Simulated scan of single mutants.
Amino acid sequence: MQLDAEDFTALTVTEGEDRLHAQLNRPEVRNAIDSTMITELHAVCEHLEACPKILILSGTESGGKGIFASGADIGQLRQRRRDDALRGINSAAFDRLAKLPMPVIAALDGFALGGGAELAWAADFRVATDQVKIGQPETGLGIIPAAGALWRLKDLTGEAMAKEILFAGRILNADEALAHGLVSSLHAADELLGAAHELADRIGRQDPLAVQVSKRVFAMPREAHPHVDNLAQAILFESEAKFDRMQAFLDKKAKRAEQPTNNGTKES
């Protein structure tokens, strides 16, 4: 079943057999994250919760340059009050995205600031161009990054760098983001989406159930291990894919053993 995204205005969605590509598409405001985009992200999550697929998130061009997301829409953000903060408008959407059954890949170009950075932190993988600028300028605006950065960043990059980004408003360039583990690879702008799809291809070659179970177990607290690992493995040990994939491996190994080597003997 495909997502009906014809009425979307903030996201452009392309769906394939094993993945969905959601492009942030508000170039006139540098992809600022507004309530419409949040609503559409919830719709994407609802679809992928029911029909698990890999999600690729990317930005668009603004003024001839690539951009992921410049942050939350400041016009809307300035009008929000205490009750809006308690509703966790952005944090609820980003947390839901982080908990999707299959991995999420963020393809970052240009600015990924504020809420845009927090959207990226919620992804499982971040690939970027050498033009990326990423960070959390919220304290300069008299607020905090309340959509995940305050607790995700410490795990992603360590306490010292997290505090520089969060308390001192440090904006990292591409090389710094790579060095501190905030992105996994850098690419030319015209190769960025290709790199994201190549990563999705590698994930797609794995058993989908094993990937989903791995993602869930990975997110468990330390005290849940190793018990949760044993329970998860017990489920997978009974799956048809486990038997089929292991048999295919054994058949391939046996076939290789029957093939003669360069000296005319069979492989041992």
Rank of each mutant, 00 (worst) to 15 (best):
Gly59Leu: 06
Thr60Phe: 03
Thr60Met: 01
Ser62Thr: 11
Gly64Ala: 07
Ile67Leu: 14
Ile67Ala: 15
Phe68Asn: 07
Gly71Asp: 12
Asp73Gln: 02
Gln76Cys: 13
Leu77Glu: 01
Leu77Lys: 00
Leu77His: 00
Gln79Glu: 13
Arg81Ile: 14
Asp84Arg: 00
Ala85Glu: 10
Leu86His: 07
Arg87Ile: 08
Ile89His: 12
Asn90Leu: 15
Asn90Cys: 15
Phe94His: 02
Phe94Arg: 01
Asp95Ser: 15
Asp95Met: 13
Ala98Ile: 03
Ala98Thr: 03
Ala98Val: 04
Pro101His: 08
Pro101Glu: 06
Leu108Gly: 05
Gly110Leu: 08
Phe111Ala: 10
Phe111Asp: 03
Ala112Gln: 07
Leu113Thr: 04
Gly114Asn: 07
Leu119Met: 13
Leu119Arg: 09
Ala122Glu: 04
Ala123Trp: 06
Asp124Leu: 05
Asp124Ile: 05
Asp124Pro: 02
Phe125Glu: 04
Val127Asp: 04
Val132Lys: 02
Lys133Met: 15
Ile134His: 02
Ile134Ala: 03
Gly135Thr: 03
Gly135Ala: 04
Gly135Leu: 05
Pro137Gly: 02
Glu138Phe: 13
Gly140Phe: 15
Gly142Ile: 04
Gly142Gln: 02
Ala146Asp: 14
Gly148Phe: 07
Gly148Ser: 06
Arg152Val: 01
Lys154Arg: 15
Leu156Tyr: 11
Thr157Cys: 10
Met161Phe: 04
Met161Asn: 06
Ala162Asn: 11
Ala162Val: 08
Glu164Trp: 01
Ile165Asp: 10
Ala168Tyr: 14
Ala168Gly: 13
Gly169Asn: 13
Gly169Ser: 11
Arg170Leu: 10
Ile171Gln: 12
Ile171Met: 14
Ile171Asp: 08
Asn173Trp: 09
Glu176Ser: 05
Ala179Phe: 03
Leu182Gly: 00
Leu182Asn: 01
Ser184Met: 15
